[in-house]
Design a protein around this nucleic acid. Sequence first.
DNA 1: TTGGATAATTAGGCGCGCCTAATTAAATTA
DNA 2: TAATTTAATTAGGCGCGCCTAATTATCCAA
Lengths: 252, 252
Amino acid sequence: MVKQLLSESQQDYLKIVLDLINEKKVARTKEIAHRKGVSMPSVTEAMQKLSQENYVQYSAREFIELTPKGEEAALRLTSKYAFLKHFLVDVLGIQDEIADKDACKLEHHLNKSTLDRFILLYQFLTECPKSDKRTINLFKECIKAAEGDFLCDSDCKSCFISSNFPHRFGEKTIHTLLSKLNRGQKGRVIMLGPDSEIRLSLIDKGLLPGSEFHVEEIGDANRPFVVQTDGCLIELDEEAAKMIEVAIEQPE
Amino acid sequence: MVKQLLSESQQDYLKIVLDLINEKKVARTKEIAHRKGVSMPSVTEAMQKLSQENYVQYSAREFIELTPKGEEAALRLTSKYAFLKHFLVDVLGIQDEIADKDACKLEHHLNKSTLDRFILLYQFLTECPKSDKRTINLFKECIKAAEGDFLCDSDCKSCFISSNFPHRFGEKTIHTLLSKLNRGQKGRVIMLGPDSEIRLSLIDKGLLPGSEFHVEEIGDANRPFVVQTDGCLIELDEEAAKMIEVAIEQPE
DNA sequence: TTGGATAATTAGGCGCGCCTAATTAAATTA
DNA sequence: TAATTTAATTAGGCGCGCCTAATTATCCAA
């Protein structure tokens, strides 16, 4: 007995079919194609294959239905997806359409035990009596600050660039801002400031918490800083450099 | 000018090449094949393609090197990967090998803004002066409890199954355990208890926080509970039913 | 009831990422 | 240096998931 696993695409089809049956009583080729963003022949082909493996009840030009096996699979997938979307939207504050896509990806790719840890984190933040209920609200203030909404009564902006906890990057390190370093110094990124646009560009360039770097050129208001992370040169203007909190070795 | 994007597989190749160059100075077909878990011809083919698009310097039987373009790409990917693994291991406490795989998947599939939110959450939990530094430690106790390690001085086990915060599932709901419901009642899952094995099986069956269900049959120590989530029947023994905290509509 | 619109399917093809088998080049060692 | 081992490549093929074009079935309205 060979255990046939569903491909990612097949999983998507099953979820879509379930959704359509719930919403509109019947699942039609055209609508499935539309939701999945593929052509109708692709749907026909997929349904034929799924029907061979007994996930759907399908014969040409008749209603597409889920078999018990297919329904079970679809429901498992859907509930994982629903939780993940929930987490992304409610805890992380991700925008709806992006959360949709990412929840779907996560549902496909996350290991069981990792999913469980996300559930645990969710439970912890929203329900655990030991965790301060304010925690999640504080985090939401952070999000607002990161989105540039400083109208909120938090002073997160300064918090982002002035924390100085000793941290996991070693005992003998001190924390400062990248903008204060000299040429030749090495360090490790601890935090990125909240400014949304710069933040995202830094992330895109690969300068994330935990990244090691080396200062190639120091800059000022007119010239850019140039830092290297493992060989990749990144230019930063002063504004960006002031947003990057770093850990450096204690100078002797 | 067509913007050629790297496929998932190509991204993996670039990361592996970068790793090998850093570790062993040179990247060899055989070693790449081994790390990626593919055959050598697959590597050759991939390198030829990557070299066409100017990500690697490649000619038959010579050393494989990264072009600046390839190195930049590899570094971006690697630093995202590194952060994500970091997050999975340090915050969520995921096991090393699983974290490796999942970080890789996340790196491929997470939207930029979602990645940013994970960074924000990480920063918040580990650095933000407003969040109680104990928060993350409390969460780690939760993890221990969920792993069945009740030797830790936390009383998380009871916490898991006795919280009664009003929560987002509506104002007029009350919280109880699934084991206390009668046949025919509907409810929504709030929390799952910490027992690792049962927990994972519930998650696998699709009974996650947020799932709606309907009690088909009530059970006791000898007979199983049967609940339905959107049409999928799930059998639960009493032990499991006692681990599921649910929200139900306030009975009139 | 019949012709036109719409929906669904079949036929044929394509790119990607992988494979095995066969071949060739390079490195090692007798 | 010749023989052998090891590494890398070429050749040819496969399955998956998608596509377009052409065909067929179904529905609806004149």
